[in-house]
Amino acid sequence: MSHLLELEGVSKRFGGVQAVVDVDLYADSGEIVGVIGPNGAGKTTLFNVVTGFYAPDAGKMTFDGHNISGLKPNALTRLGMARTFQAVRLFNAMTVLENAMVGRHTRTRAGVWGALTRNRRTREEEAQITEEARKALSFFGNRLIGREDSLASDLAYADRRRLEIARAMVTGPKLLLLDEPAAGMNPAEKEELITQIGRLRDEYGYAIVLIEHDMPVIKGVCDRVAALDHGVKIAEGTYDEVASNTQVIEAYLGKAAAAQREGLA
């Protein structure tokens, strides 16, 4: 059986810049794949290509047995893909609960008629949406629950990141793409996040792909790590394999520093 998400030779170019070059990557249910790389390595662009925000210039992408290149983000969400954003992007004028409820959009159907008549089906559906949303919020203990009616813009930074994950969970995904979920968190919050991402894999069985700069987080949660540099995948394997890869060290520290480090070793 093929993988849940499978990329083959995916490329993306902006004008003269090759942002993603011929990248192969896969992810399966119940597995956490880390994507690392220095700033500007093309990680977020890769996410944007996978989630349909950009159309790839070349390459094959399949998800859950469907060819997904050229599909729009909303279609992908319906297929079971959900993501968070590097710069937290919540619906600021909506409440915490409403933010989460929006996530349920593709799994529900009420239309104009339902909204106007508020018939039994619509009411049941609303109740179910609320329940799903609360369930996702309660995943973060009492961090979000109890604040359902606050505006999203009033939340503390780490809670805003958590709400983004909760919102993604509500969509009922098979694959979760997290773009730097630990950015801006303090060490204690990162610890908590590491456990939670692990639980997302173990309890929910999601496949998770995450971009992260924070190496302890990558080390703490990832089953497999891929490293990008200048849009090219330069290494893939366990954390230790990738972390000791010369090319990766070079990418992060520059050639001279890498050589120096090698000399020291």
């Binding site: 969400t77 993501r83 992007r89 004028a93 909506m94 959009h105 969509t171």
Partner: peptide, 10 residues
């Protein structure tokens, strides 16, 4: 509020 994210939410 945010067109891109809304699309990302399905």
């Amino acid at each position: 509020e945010d067109e891109d994210v809304a699309e990302g939410m399905g």
